[in-house]
Measured scan of single mutants.
Amino acid sequence: MDVFMKGLSKAKEGVVAAAEKTKQGVAEAAGKTKEGVLYVGSKTKEGVVHGVATVAEKTKEQVTNVGGAVVTGVTAVAQKTVEGAGSIAAATGFVKKDQLGKNEEGAPQEGILEDMPVDPDNEAYEMPSEEGYQDYEPEA
Rank of each mutant, 00 (worst) to 15 (best):
G93R: 03
A78I: 13
K58M: 14
A56Y: 13
E130D: 07
V37A: 04
A19Y: 15
P108R: 10
S9H: 09
D115N: 05
E130C: 09
A27V: 06
G132C: 10
K80C: 08
G67H: 07
V52Y: 15
V95N: 10
A29C: 09
E139H: 08
V70L: 14
A56S: 08
A140P: 11
V52R: 01
V118A: 11
T81D: 01
A91G: 06
V16L: 10
A90E: 05
F94D: 04
I112P: 09
N122I: 07
K60I: 13
K58L: 10
K12H: 11
I88P: 02
A27T: 03
M116V: 01
T75M: 10
V48L: 13
T75R: 05
A76F: 08
A76K: 12
F94K: 03
A17H: 07
V63K: 01
A69F: 11
A27Y: 12
Q62C: 11
V15W: 07
Y125D: 09
A29K: 04
A124L: 05
A85L: 14
V48P: 00
P120H: 09
A27H: 06
K43E: 00
E131Q: 09
P128N: 10
P128I: 12
M5H: 00
Q109W: 12
V3A: 02
G84M: 15
E13A: 14
Q99Y: 10
A53G: 06
F94Q: 07
M5C: 01
V49L: 13
T75K: 12
E123R: 04
V63P: 01
E28P: 01
Q62A: 07
E137H: 08
V95I: 13
Y39A: 02
V49A: 11
E105M: 11
T54A: 12
G106F: 11
V52Q: 01
S87E: 08
V77G: 03
A69V: 14
D2A: 01
A78E: 02
G41H: 12
V71H: 05
S129L: 06
G93D: 04
I112S: 13
E110C: 06
A124V: 10
M1F: 00
N65L: 08
E137N: 04
Q109T: 11
F4P: 00
K10R: 13
A140F: 12
T54W: 13
P138E: 04
V74M: 13
A85T: 05
E35V: 07
V49R: 09
E83S: 07
G106P: 13
V15S: 00
K60P: 01
T59I: 05
G51V: 14
K23G: 01
T44S: 13
D119C: 12
L8M: 08
E126C: 13
Q109V: 07
E104T: 08
K58Q: 05
E131Y: 06
E139K: 09
K6M: 06
E28F: 07
A85E: 02
E131C: 10
D121T: 09
Y136A: 07
T75D: 03
E104D: 14
D2F: 15
G47F: 14
V95P: 08
T33V: 14
G67F: 11
V15D: 00
P117W: 10
M5E: 00
D2S: 02
Y136W: 12
Y133A: 07
A69P: 02
V74W: 14
K6P: 00
Y125E: 05
E104A: 13
S9N: 15
T54D: 01
L100A: 13
K96N: 13
L38F: 13
G86H: 11
E46M: 13
V48Y: 12
T72G: 11
V63M: 15
L8N: 00
L8S: 00
V16W: 13
Y133Q: 08
A140K: 08
T44M: 14
T54S: 12
T22G: 05
V118H: 07
A30N: 00
G84R: 13
P117T: 08
A89D: 02
G36Q: 14
V66A: 05
F4N: 00
P108K: 15
T59H: 02
V118K: 10
Y39I: 10
T59D: 00
T59Y: 15
K12Y: 14
M127F: 11
T33Q: 01
E104N: 12
T44G: 04
K32M: 09
P108A: 06
K6E: 02
V16S: 07
V63F: 09
E57P: 02
G51E: 01
G84T: 15
L100M: 06
V77L: 13
T64L: 12
V16K: 11
V52F: 04
D119T: 10
V74I: 04
A90P: 02
E105V: 09
L38M: 13
K58G: 00
A27D: 01
E57R: 05
T54I: 15
K102I: 10
E13H: 03
F4R: 00
P128Q: 07
K80Q: 06
S129I: 06
D2E: 01
Y133L: 14
E137C: 07
V63W: 15
Q134K: 11
E131V: 11
Q62R: 12
A56H: 06
A76P: 01
N65R: 13
L38T: 04
E61G: 06
K10E: 01
M1G: 00
D98R: 10
E46N: 14
A53S: 08
K34E: 00
I88L: 10
V82R: 04
H50N: 09
V70R: 02
V49E: 03
A27N: 08
Q134A: 06
V48H: 00
V40P: 00
V66W: 15
D115A: 12
G132A: 12
V77S: 02
T75E: 03
G41V: 12
Q109G: 03
V74Y: 14
V82Y: 09
V77Y: 06
E20S: 03
E130F: 07
M116H: 14
V49D: 01
Q62S: 12
Y39M: 06
S129D: 10
K23Y: 08
P117N: 09
K80L: 15
A140H: 06
K80I: 07
V66T: 03
E130N: 12
V77D: 01
A19E: 00
K96S: 13
Q62L: 08
G84A: 14
P128A: 10
K32C: 03
K43G: 01
V16G: 03
N103T: 08
A29E: 00
S42A: 14
E123D: 12
V3D: 01
L113R: 09
T54G: 07
A107Q: 05
E57N: 10
E46K: 07
A90D: 08
K96R: 07
Y39E: 02
E46C: 07
E13T: 07
Q99R: 06
K34H: 03
H50P: 01
Q134R: 13
P108V: 08
P138N: 04
E130I: 07
E35K: 10
D119P: 07
F4M: 03
A91C: 11
P108E: 14
Y39G: 03
A27K: 10
S129G: 08
G93F: 02
V26S: 00
E28Y: 04
G31R: 09
M1P: 00
V66F: 14
E61N: 06
D121R: 04
V71T: 05
G67M: 12
T22A: 14
A85P: 03
E57Y: 05
G41F: 12
A30R: 02
G7Y: 08
G86T: 09
E114M: 03
V40C: 05
M127N: 10
A78F: 14
A19I: 05
V48S: 01
V118W: 05
V95M: 02
K97T: 10
A11N: 00
L100W: 02
Y125M: 03
Y133P: 11
E137K: 03
A11V: 15
V66C: 07
K45I: 14
K23E: 00
T92E: 04
A30W: 11
A85N: 02
Q62I: 08
T59N: 01
T44H: 01
K12L: 12
L100G: 07
F94I: 04
D121C: 08
G47A: 15
A11R: 00
S9R: 13
Y39C: 04
G132H: 05
Y125W: 08
V37E: 00
G86W: 15
T75N: 06
G106N: 05
